[in-house]
């Protein structure tokens, strides 16, 4: 990423202009051509710097109130292959392998699920458990009972 890419990140991290030609508006403010703006954004999309372009809904506004962090103690030899499959489940929003903190924390696979009820979240967890099968020794779901702080991550000043 060069300075122009960073300038594009800074210009779009709070959103795209809501005008018929948003990339033209960006180009004008950055002194680039519209084609250059689109080409750079496309390159960032392809390299994964941009995950996707579109609307980001507020979970709560859509009625997703049961946001559960499902955690799994999965056999080390199988966790990567199984994590790939769990991540592709439609209701999983984040999926990571993380270190255990024994003895307090035996879990090495984390998958966030978003549901409209705890029953639904549990059903999702059951589907993950079925996928993991015997490779999983223990599991838990941690619901957030209070949001104490959430700030938007602003990446570039």
């Amino acid at each position: 990423m060069d300075d122009l890419d960073l300038a594009l990140v800074a210009a779009t991290q709070s959103g795209l202009p809501l005008t018929p030609r948003p990339y033209h508006a960006l180009a004008e403010s950055l002194g680039l051509t519209p084609a250059e703006v689109m080409a750079r954004m496309n390159a960032m999309l392809e390299s994964g710097v941009i995950r996707r372009i579109g609307v980001v809904p507020n979970h709560y506004a859509l009625g997703y109130r049961a946001n559960g962090m499902t955690v799994w103690d999965v056999d080390d030899d199988q966790v990567d292959a199984l994590g790939e499959r769990v991540g592709r489940l439609a209701f999983v929003s984040h999926c990571y392998r993380r270190p255990r903190q024994l003895p307090l924390w035996p879990y090495n696979l984390f998958a966030m699920v978003h549901a409209r009820s705890h029953e639904q979240a549990q059903a999702y967890a059951d589907a993950i458990a079925a996928m993991l099968g015997d490779a999983c020794r223990r599991a838990d779901i941690l619901y957030s009972s209070r949001l104490l702080k959430k700030t938007g991550l602003r990446i570039v000043e």
């Binding site: 990140v9 959103g15 795209l16 809501l18 994964g48 579109g54 609307v55 990446i155």
Partner: peptide, 14 residues
């Protein structure tokens, strides 16, 4: 209802 509209960046890549 929407928290954002536009590119969603992967902070890890930056």
């Amino acid at each position: 209802v929407l928290t954002r509209f536009g590119p969603l960046f992967n902070a890890d890549r930056m």
